[in-house]
Amino acid sequence: MLDITETERLILTNQYKILSELSINKDDGSKEIYDELFEVFNNGYTSNYDDVTTNPDYFVYDENILDNDGQEEVRDLIAMYQYLLNHFTSAKSAYKNLPDIRFVGYDLNDSYEGKKLGYMGFIFDTLKSYPDVNEAFGHASERNSHGDTYAHEKMLQKYLEVRHNDDFYKETDKYVKEIIEAK
């Protein structure tokens, strides 16, 4: 289902908007599902198109959607922060001078990063995924890095480099330190 035309995407967007409106008085969760699917197709979140089989007010044209690489980067960044949150306390005990985790999102002043920030919001606010990472970022407006994205670029690069190592989940203290201190 990843390969649909802009016209098909528009039809699905409208379909889920209509279904959402028709479900407004139902108490079966269908309105929330239709709202989520509307957002997926309206914003062109291709990584989530397959959600159709499992469960703002204008159409965003293909040239304005976040590409798959950008979506993958956002998912990787959130997964990195989840890993760091899960193992930071232990790493801090092992490395007393370990700096705190710095939660840095994307820069709204850059159009491409703004799309990444929108997708991050979709993951946190619509899908309700990674609630502890969402909480660590704070209010949605705090996800805007204001040009500070470089702060997570080296961390993400290190995370991607080491996440498939055989001992990644055994030597968590070491990897948390390496990721946080990546330069």
Rank of each mutant, 00 (worst) to 15 (best):
S90N: 09
K17H: 11
K158F: 07
V162P: 02
P99Y: 04
L12R: 12
L2R: 13
N25F: 08
K26A: 07
K31I: 10
R9S: 12
S129R: 10
A91W: 01
D35L: 14
D57G: 07
M80C: 09
N134I: 08
K31M: 11
Y16D: 02
Y169S: 01
Y175K: 01
L22P: 00
A136P: 05
N144S: 11
A79T: 06
F38W: 04
S47C: 08
N144T: 02
F168D: 11
L117Y: 02
N165R: 12
V40D: 04
T5L: 03
D110S: 15
E113R: 13
G138K: 13
N109A: 11
D132W: 03
G70L: 11
L156Y: 10
S141M: 09
D148L: 15
Y61T: 14
H87V: 05
S30W: 06
F137I: 13
L12G: 07
G44H: 07
N86M: 10
D69K: 15
N97K: 01
K26T: 06
D148P: 02
Y81C: 09
F103G: 09
K17L: 14
E135Y: 04
S141K: 04
Y175D: 03
I4S: 01
N109M: 06
H146Q: 05
F124V: 06
K128V: 00
I123V: 15
N55E: 13
Y106H: 06
G118V: 00
N14I: 07
E63K: 15
I24R: 14
E6M: 09
Y95P: 00
K170W: 07
I11C: 01
M120Q: 11
V176H: 00
S20R: 12
N144C: 03
I4G: 00
D132G: 00
S141L: 07
E32M: 00
Y119N: 12
H164T: 08
T89H: 11
Y95A: 00
D35V: 04
D51T: 02
S90Y: 00
Y169G: 00
A136Q: 09
E135R: 03
K115S: 04
Y150H: 15
A94V: 01
L19N: 13
I123N: 04
E161S: 08
F137R: 04
E36V: 05
N68T: 14
H139Y: 13
K177S: 00
G118P: 01
L37K: 06
I18P: 01
D27F: 05
I123Y: 02
E142G: 13
Q82P: 02
I4H: 06
N97H: 00
I11M: 13
G114V: 05
D110C: 13
N64I: 04
K31H: 10
D167W: 02
D57Y: 15
